[in-house]
Design a protein around this nucleic acid. Structure first.
Length: 226
DNA sequence: AATGCGGGGGG
DNA sequence: CCCCCAGCATT
């Protein structure tokens, strides 16, 4: 007998299915944001690096940094062979530069050993340095075309406001939130659904001052701003 | 479950 | 000023 707090209910599934469909439509009609790494044909190398650059960092900031970074470090090989000090200097304007330097160097070392490929099993991916749940899901989606949710603070906020808040402090360990996010990407193009949720979170369902007045799904949303 | 990492944007 | 940002490793 499972607690209702930890199990995704039928009504909740219906809400999420409709939300995902609406957000994906909105995105396909051009409602979302545009970033260089979303262009078709972006190499996995760039996609993985960008996920590290995006951690706790605004996507617009990373976008303005994108060309400079990949001009200097065009591939895993250049990144792996770059002097650590130069990489640190490069990353300083982004913040978290010490940590990011270690993460990128570890990833580059791994990629060099594995011909630029990453495991296609979640448990195996978690053993790769600098890869947590979020990056593992990103790799499963981008490299292996898997149907996985990019569960970050944005997706968590959208889902929690739209349906209900999670119980546990850590996003990664709340069973209900995990189920809800997986359900969200159950249908449709995983990339489109994920990006649409992230963009909705950034443009309308903001952390500080959500713009519920102009939100086109606010009618079905459980969250009501003051 | 709580902290450290970190510079920059925005209310 | 303080809050927040496509997290992860460590404790």
């Amino acid at each position: 007998m499972s607690s209702p707090d930890t199990v995704l209910g039928t009504g909740e599934k219906r809400k999420l299915t409709l939300l995902a469909a609406d957000l994906a439509d909105w995105y396909r009609q051009g409602g979302g944001r545009s970033f260089p790494w979303r262009e078709p044909g972006t190499p996995l190398y760039q996609l993985v690096c960008v996920e590290v650059l995006l951690q706790r960092t605004r996507a617009e900031t990373v976008a303005s940094f994108y060309n400079r970074f990949f001009t200097r470090f065009p591939g895993w090989h250049e990144l792996a062979n770059a002097p650590g000090e130069e990489l640190e200097e490069f990353l300083k304007p982004l913040g978290l530069w010490k940590r990011r330097t270690a993460s990128l160097r570890a990833l580059a070392a791994y990629a060099a050993e594995h011909d630029g490929m990453f495991p296609n099993r979640y448990e195996e991916l978690l053993q790769v340095p600098a890869v947590g749940q979020y990056v593992a899901h990103a790799i499963l989606m981008f490299q292996h075309g898997g149907r996985f949710p990019l569960i970050d603070v944005n997706m968590a906020r959208v889902v929690e406001r739209f349906v209900r808040p999670r119980k546990l402090a850590d996003i990664r360990y709340d069973p209900w939130l995990q189920q809800a996010c997986r359900w969200l990407v159950r249908r449709g193009d995983p990339k489109v659904v994920n990006w649409s949720v992230l963009d909705h979170a950034a443009l309308t369902c903001c952390a500080r001052a959500p713009d519920c007045q102009s939100c086109f799904v606010s009618r079905r949303c459980a969250f009501k701003a003051a």
